[in-house]
Amino acid sequence: MHSGYTFRTRAILRAQLAKGWDVRGLTGRRHVAAGPQEELVDGLHFHRTPGEAAGGNALLREWRDISAHADAIESLVRQWRPDIIHAHSPVLNAMAAQRVARRHGIPLIYEIRAFWEDAAVGNGTGTEGSPRYWLTRQLETHAVRAADAVAVICEGLRSDLVARGIDSAKITVSPNGVDLDQFGAPVPRDPALTAKLGLEGADVVGFIGSFYDYEGLDDLIAAMPRLVRARPRAKLLLVGGGPMEQALRDQALASPFTDHIVFVGRVPHDQVEHYYAQVDVLAYPRKAMRLTDLVTPLKPLEAMAQGRLVAASSVGGHRELIEDGVTGTLFAPDDPAAIAQALAGMFADRGFWDERRIVARDFVERERNWSSNILRYEPVYQRLLGRDSTAKAA
């Protein structure tokens, strides 16, 4: 299954294995891909929680999923005897892991990649300020207080926890990064794919990722008429899928410049780099909301690693990753005119492109490379164990 969460998890596990640590992954019932109960994937050892996600009342369903996940963690702990349990978002995982960690006296680190209540708002399945939002927020805060250590992916999440009264000394920032061994060697543009996509001679703007409402792809499509009038050869390449896909396709069909918008659909992960190679500027027009202000995305870093230019909305999560005019271009969120103006300006002046690509790539290698980012966990593990880091982690 492909998402920012799965790619981050894979990168963490690969980096830990490279250090000689013994690591297992355990998925919950919300992981719906078919397969055996125990499996090796990409050289990584995974276990599954048996059964499918429960039906019925939402609260009852989630409680049953927590119980099933806790039972699976318990089984693996008894079989394998890990030194540390490392759980990540959503909070349901932390709640299941805490039951087992407390019972066996195993240190627990809880890694927050987004607050579940805000993710629900961003995905359109929740409403900010609702009773469910409030309850989820309380569960998140309780899970943080109960964990032995907490990791977050950015300063926005850390600051929010500190504002809730969490001791900052308990929190480690382990930012999103790129596995440069797998994603750090850009491939040349494939002329056959260029022709197939109808991008020959085009100024190509692209988005490669999941089509959620908070990504702002409707604003990007709405920007295309202004962009094409300024840059007649401009085309938009959209690679991926998700909840907003049909609405975005309908919007593109209604656009006066529908022939300048190309939908590819989902592609195998091992083919993604070939689509990056087709794009001049990767655009990330995230909408302004709590989720995007607090959470840093992974995709802009992948684009920088691939030697692509990046343009993004100036929400908090992007500002933490991108220095305007240095590693990327920032524009006002929720504003198609601002998107078009920023992109047209980038295509009108190609003189800075090579230098910016080099600077952005250097930034990823220096500060957002998983081989070095993983070192941020090592002192946390050492502190929790009270000894060296030759540990087993689940």
Rank of each mutant, 00 (worst) to 15 (best):
K299L: 08
E245M: 11
V267H: 12
P300Y: 09
R226S: 09
A283K: 02
M224Q: 11
V205P: 07
T258I: 03
G209C: 11
G265A: 12
L253A: 14
F207Y: 15
A283M: 05
L199C: 05
L199A: 09
F263W: 06
L220Y: 06
E302C: 12
Q246I: 04
V279G: 01
K299Q: 00
I221C: 04
A305G: 13
Q251T: 06
Y214S: 03
A254M: 10
P243C: 00
P256R: 01
A254V: 07
Y284S: 08
A252R: 02
E215P: 00
R231T: 11
F263K: 07
R290E: 11
E273R: 14
K287A: 03
G265M: 09
G216R: 07
D218F: 07
L291F: 13
V228Q: 06
A303M: 06
F211S: 00
I208K: 00
V295F: 03
L199G: 03
F257L: 04
E245H: 10
R229H: 10
S210F: 09
A305M: 11
R231V: 13
R231A: 08
E273S: 11
M289Y: 01
V267N: 12
D250H: 15
D250T: 14
V228N: 05
V228G: 04
V272E: 05
L301C: 03
G242E: 02
L236W: 04
R290F: 06
L220F: 11
Y284G: 07
V281H: 05
R229E: 08
H260S: 14
R229K: 15
L298F: 13
P297N: 10
S210Q: 13
V205T: 10
A288G: 00
V262R: 15
M224F: 09
D219H: 14
L220P: 03
A223R: 06
Y212P: 01
H269A: 15
A252K: 07
Q251S: 00
P285W: 00
K287E: 02
R266N: 12
D219I: 00
R231L: 03
I261T: 03
A303S: 14
M244L: 02
R286P: 02
E273A: 14
A254G: 14
R231D: 04
A252S: 10
F211D: 00
V228P: 02
F257Y: 15
A277C: 04
G240H: 07
S210Y: 02
V279W: 01
L291M: 08
A303N: 02
R231Y: 03
V228M: 06
G209V: 11
E200K: 15
V281I: 15
D203C: 12
L301E: 05
Y212Q: 12
G216H: 08
F257A: 09
Y284P: 01
E200R: 15
L199S: 04
F257H: 14
A202S: 15
D259R: 15
I261N: 02
Y214D: 04
M244Y: 01
A277L: 08
P268Y: 06
P232T: 11
G206K: 01
P285C: 10
M244T: 06
M244Q: 14
Y284I: 13
L248Q: 01
T292N: 10
D280Y: 06
A277M: 05
T258Y: 05
E273I: 05
V272M: 14
Y212E: 11
G265P: 12
G307D: 08
